[in-house]
Design a binder for these strands. Sequence first.
DNA 1: TACCTTATATAAATGCACGATATATCCTCT
DNA 2: AGAGGATATATCGTGCATTTATATAAGGTA
Lengths: 155, 155
Amino acid sequence: MDPTPDALPDDDLDVDAFTTAIESFNRFYIRLPTLEKLSFTTLSVLDTLASAGGPIRLTDLTRTEQVSQPGLTQLVTRLERDGLVERRPDPSDGRAVLVHLTEAGRQVGRSRHADRTRHLAPLIARLSPEQRRAIAGALPALTRLAELGRARPSG
Amino acid sequence: MDPTPDALPDDDLDVDAFTTAIESFNRFYIRLPTLEKLSFTTLSVLDTLASAGGPIRLTDLTRTEQVSQPGLTQLVTRLERDGLVERRPDPSDGRAVLVHLTEAGRQVGRSRHADRTRHLAPLIARLSPEQRRAIAGALPALTRLAELGRARPSG
DNA sequence: TACCTTATATAAATGCACGATATATCCTCT
DNA sequence: AGAGGATATATCGTGCATTTATATAAGGTA
């Protein structure tokens, strides 16, 4: 079977092992108990708006989120009803709508971040110092990987 | 303000920074294009069954998945219709149903794993050798963290 | 203006989730 | 053994979210 191929030098990264580790981590991470009762798509839209740092046109959101355009229109309507986003006209295009995150909407992301940190902290405390250092050392690379992934989203 | 507290020695792990990095990575990772058209909950159940390595009772699935029991019954019915799981009686309890993953169901997880690996490989190739080593060095700690998290799931 | 394209909204149908409840089996106590 | 209660799953009816198809409105071009 040869489950641990030693063709790779052990200081290099086995992509398959990386995927496995991420899948394992996310299996736990995704199930972190959460306070808000918002759907996956809803949270994804709020997250996209927050990380974009500015308003996004409805049509552009249909590309990053995997929802149909009518579905997104209704989702934005619900979010607007709940005060998490605002629709504003696009000054440069009378047809378009710019979806703005409100302060309350931004707060959702922040509180989820705080919540995750609160749950992760005691677990991280139980790691060895070497393990904590190992993770700390990988953070810049993980962040870089995410940047690379977002740079060319469809390839 | 003080956004970068230097109270921590820089070889230790800032939990907040960790959460931020994971969120950033997952924002990209979650959106990796995927072939299957299965819902989030569906995939979660298949994943749980695969990582359990054996059949699970319907009621036990309602605990790991965040779905009501009737919802899970219907979900399993759909999965069974699609040939991804099988219902079998529990020999030790006539009321219970054991949900077994079929080979086709197992294949869903495998193909998703392969798909992710395929998408990640070219991005990882663009990291520096040091960055790859840093990630490789963090994988055991990440896996351990997931184990710790699964061990005491409710806080 | 007439026409085509793009951006968003509305409508009808479907699907997936839930709560309440029914049915079958297990367990315990007498 | 048999009654009563608890547990496991299934069914029914309802509500919300999402989809496809289509409508409305604005931009762009001849």
